[in-house]
Simulated assay, not measured.
Amino acid sequence: MLKTRLDLDRIRTARRVIDPMFLDTPLFRCDALGRPLGCAVSIKLETANPVRSFKARGTELVASRLSDQGRAAAVCASAGNLGQALGWSGSRRGLDVTVVASRQAPAAKLDRIRALGAELELVDGDFEMARERAASIARQRGIRLVEDSRDIETCEGAATIGLELARQASSFDAVLIALGGGAMATGVGHVLKALAPGVEVICVQPHGAPAMTRSWHQRRVIATDSADTIADGVAGRYPIPAVLDDLLKVADDAVLVQEASIIAGMRMLLEHAGLVVEPSAALGVAAILEDPDRFADRHVVTIICGSNVDLNNYHQWVRP
């Protein structure tokens, strides 16, 4: 039995709590993308939902449990996607949701958080400053602090992606997962190692935000002084020890990619798959671009984890 904080039975049960609109997302082979990459590529599309990312799989669990406990409010720090997801899940269960974000976060994400009914507080500095402020609000108001990756619900909600992948695991041999705080990587990795151990679990992070990848390779928490990447959704600086412990058990590799490769990946997903994605969602394609020999003639799944992107920035990035 795989020893992590996650539990396969709880993950299976989670599917009954999560709104079905976030489940059974498309998984399809995209030959138009695979041909220029030199391998077979299948896309797991986690963006065709009201919050445009996989995050609601976890916030549905969080909000459901808070509602069952009679709790009325929650707060989180967010680079953008978690805040949208918690706002959506909370509003449907009568929860007052506060989201703390950096002023540097993409305006499109901040506008969506407001539109989904959450109270938004902005702080100077990066995501780690937002996390400190969210913890302070939780203490002051006596409300639930929702911490992505630290809270097991966020990991086990994301792990339901793994259940869906495992059904078709005989058709592919590797999955590429964007690595930030680690909820998706540990969740999907846990399920695949339990149900499809032959599938290689490869985590991908930008060179400009390498904290979790460095920690995985050195098998201890390595914090960084800064994060400098367009992939804002994975730009944390302080890995959570318990999450790293889980990641060490379920990931086969963790790699870093350059910003130019992320942009090239975004462009390829638009040109060959018709997908507008945020930078974090292009990390898997970037990994193939940087190490084509590793993936040559293999069948790889890449998880398209989010499409909340500032259009002005996006047009600048993908313009040839």
Rank of each mutant, 00 (worst) to 15 (best):
residue 245 D to A: 14
residue 259 E to K: 08
residue 118 A to N: 13
residue 27 L to R: 06
residue 124 D to M: 06
residue 59 T to M: 09
residue 62 V to K: 02
residue 39 C to Q: 12
residue 4 T to I: 02
residue 154 T to R: 06
residue 281 A to S: 13
residue 276 V to F: 04
residue 300 V to T: 10
residue 120 L to T: 13
residue 147 E to W: 10
residue 172 F to H: 06
residue 57 R to S: 05
residue 266 M to I: 03
residue 208 G to D: 01
residue 32 A to Q: 14
residue 146 V to Q: 11
residue 172 F to A: 06
residue 131 R to T: 13
residue 52 R to W: 01
residue 65 R to Q: 13
residue 67 S to L: 07
residue 211 A to H: 04
residue 262 I to V: 15
residue 60 E to D: 02
residue 304 I to Q: 12
residue 119 E to K: 12
residue 145 L to G: 00
residue 214 R to S: 00
residue 118 A to L: 07
residue 231 A to Q: 04
residue 224 T to A: 11
residue 179 L to V: 01
residue 88 W to P: 01
residue 16 R to E: 14
residue 218 Q to K: 01
residue 71 R to T: 00
residue 154 T to W: 07
residue 19 D to Y: 01
residue 70 G to F: 01
residue 35 R to F: 03
residue 13 T to K: 14
residue 2 L to F: 14
residue 302 T to C: 11
residue 157 G to E: 04
residue 127 F to Q: 12
residue 125 G to F: 04
residue 76 C to L: 03
residue 132 E to Q: 15
residue 168 Q to P: 00
residue 184 M to N: 11
residue 230 I to R: 14
residue 260 A to Y: 05
residue 183 A to W: 09
residue 283 L to D: 05
residue 241 P to H: 08
residue 195 L to Y: 12
residue 127 F to K: 11
residue 52 R to I: 00
residue 271 E to P: 01
residue 10 R to T: 13
residue 314 Y to A: 07
residue 158 A to P: 05
residue 249 K to P: 04
residue 136 S to I: 14
residue 281 A to K: 08
residue 159 A to H: 08
residue 151 D to H: 14
residue 6 L to P: 13
residue 206 P to I: 00
residue 2 L to Y: 13
residue 150 R to C: 02
residue 115 A to G: 15
residue 162 G to S: 11
residue 210 P to N: 01
residue 22 F to T: 15
residue 157 G to N: 04
residue 94 G to C: 06
residue 311 L to C: 02
residue 115 A to N: 11
residue 232 D to C: 03
residue 26 P to G: 10
residue 210 P to I: 00
residue 70 G to K: 02
residue 111 D to E: 15
residue 3 K to T: 06
residue 246 D to T: 02
residue 53 S to I: 10
residue 126 D to L: 09
residue 161 I to C: 06
residue 173 D to K: 05
residue 298 R to W: 09
residue 211 A to Y: 01
residue 54 F to Y: 13
residue 128 E to N: 12
residue 303 I to V: 15
residue 100 V to T: 10
residue 66 L to Y: 08
residue 53 S to E: 08
residue 44 K to P: 03
residue 63 A to Q: 05
residue 170 S to Y: 02
residue 258 Q to D: 12
residue 76 C to W: 04
